[in-house]
Design a protein around this nucleic acid. Structure first.
Lengths: 149, 149
DNA sequence: GTCCTTATCTACAACGATTGTTGATAGTGT
DNA sequence: ACACTATCAACAATCGTTGTAGATAAGGAC
């Protein structure tokens, strides 16, 4: 992903203004790179420094970043959108217990619907999601009351 | 999927009662087999015959069917759960425009996370989702005001 | 067939994630 | 420093889904 400064440039080029809120959100995205944060966890990271920032502002800025192509919005069925700062095409591992998401960088170009099943379907993208349990949840004793999402 | 009668047997065996509501829901699932209906579209199919049935009852019965393993609940990021009466493992094509879902029966057992990316992750399942435009949406002239979800 | 127990039903409120609205605030070019 | 207008915070609304409650009905016993 781009640095905070570069993202500011992109926003300026788009006619969007640079505000303290946005700078802090850019910075939080930078610090949480690789963790596939939710809007809420980014809000939590920013609200310490800007106690009056609203969750709506975080959503708004994330949507703007998605719109200009500097961020990807993932729906991995964990209950809320995850935002991904890794822009090159890749796939994901999702922990069914804690909802943690990990990147899988591998070439699955050979994965295509077999002839006959999609003849009248224009495939634009392929998503591969591996589900299971991450190391932390695997080693932790069974907790039937955990909050998966 | 099982017939309406067989589903009744399963419910009875589980100690669940057979009600007109449940029979109609079973029947609607049978008729909509292969269409990956939402709870709401099943409700719409049943409410004609049982005008006082509540959406909650549909959800409740679908959840019961999922719990006893006679139905699969899919989250394909179309805005609401889809219910799948095809129980053998398979994958999906999802139309980004209209949300239609099609089954892909193919053996993708070779698709596994590469060594290194999931060494500390116990993979339990693999989901492959192809996204694009279905035949109807592809041939239909562009409609910017369609309701994807 | 009738009765009793208890599961299921409907109606309604509540939930969590996300988005719409609005008037106040604050970037940015001049 | 000014004016213009994008952005902000606060609040309400949305949508899909689930919780709660009291009324109703399924199914076994007699």
């Amino acid at each position: 992903m781009k640095s905070v400064g570069e993202l500011c440039e992109v926003f300026r080029a788009e006619g969007l203004r640079i505000t303290p809120q946005r700078q802090h959100i850019f910075s939080a995205l930078d610090q949480l790179h690789g963790t596939h944060p939710t809007a809420d966890s980014l809000y939590a990271a920013v609200v310490d420094e800007l106690p009056t920032i609203s969750l709506k502002t975080v959503y708004q800025t994330l949507n703007d970043l998605v719109r200009v192509g500097e961020l990807t919005q993932l729906d991995l069925a964990t209950g809320s959108f995850r935002f991904d700062t890794t822009l090159d095409p890749h796939h994901h591992l999702v922990c069914d217990d804690c909802g943690a998401v990990f990147d899988v960088h591998a070439d699955f170009d050979a994965v295509r619907p077999p002839v006959g099943s999609a003849d009248q379907f224009a495939v634009a993208s392929t998503e591969i999601t591996f589900r299971g349990r991450c190391n932390d949840c695997e080693t932790r004793p069974q907790d039937p009351h955990n909050n998966p999402k």
